[in-house]
């Protein structure tokens, strides 16, 4: 049936958790692309047939014309679905830049197609350019601040790091009382957890 694969792609989008990515469904995607090309060929041959019969292509309303219309509409529908699929994924990828940071963890990267990875990098670079032009880091302070200091626990062996203006030994499971702005970058990378219970 025409357009079935494309609707499957979209069903996959709507059934997945909001903001989460699944593996790029290359199989169905390629199938739909092929379907588009078949539609186009069928469309062209019907058009040729109308012309060969010596009929005016603009005004003829015979079976071949309506057949061509079906192919045309199916192709457009497939295009919309493919675009929606890729575009929606790109939107999630954009949101990952805010949530996860400039480097994607491997388990997410595996789910991306090459051009999506490239898009993420380009988009991230565009954002970084804006931030550096503005000279104000927009990736911190994601939640409204309650207290300037928070209690954190270190989740990974970070070792000595410069936090604020002092050097701290951030060993695994150690707890610190830090400035929220200093801790936030570690929290977003999953290296620390916020114990303030907010």
């Amino acid at each position: 049936m025409y357009g079935k694969g494309a609707s499957q792609l979209l069903k996959e989008l709507s059934s997945s958790e909001p903001g989460q990515l699944k593996n790029f469904n290359t199989d169905i995607f390629e199938e739909v692309i092929k379907e588009c090309i078949t539609h186009h060929l069928a469309l062209q041959s019907l058009m040729r047939k109308i012309q060969e019969e010596g009929l005016d292509i603009q005004t003829t309303r015979n079976a071949d014309h309506f057949g061509a219309v079906i192919h045309h509409l199916s192709l457009m529908r497939n295009k919309r679905c493919l675009m929606a699929y890729v575009y929606h994924r790109a939107e999630i990828i954009q949101s990952l830049r805010w949530k996860v940071g400039p480097v994607l963890p491997e388990e997410i990267q595996e789910k991306l197609k090459y051009s999506e990875e490239e898009y993420f990098r380009n988009h991230s670079a565009a954002l970084m350019e804006y931030i550096s032009e503005l000279d104000l880091d927009l990736t911190v302070d994601m939640v409204p601040p309650k207290d300037p200091y928070i209690q954190v626990r270190v989740l990974d062996d970070i070792g000595f790091a410069l936090v604020g203006d002092q050097s701290l030994n951030l060993t695994l499971h150690s707890m610190h009382f830090l400035k929220r702005t200093d801790a936030e970058q570690y929290i977003s990378q999953g290296l620390m957890e916020d114990l303030s219970g907010s």
């Binding site: 675009m83 890729v86 790109a90 051009s115 999506e116 898009y119 380009n122």
Partner: peptide, 8 residues
């Protein structure tokens, strides 16, 4: 660029 590369 991304949309062109992957679909269009």
């Amino acid at each position: 660029k991304h949309l062109k590369q992957s679909v269009l």
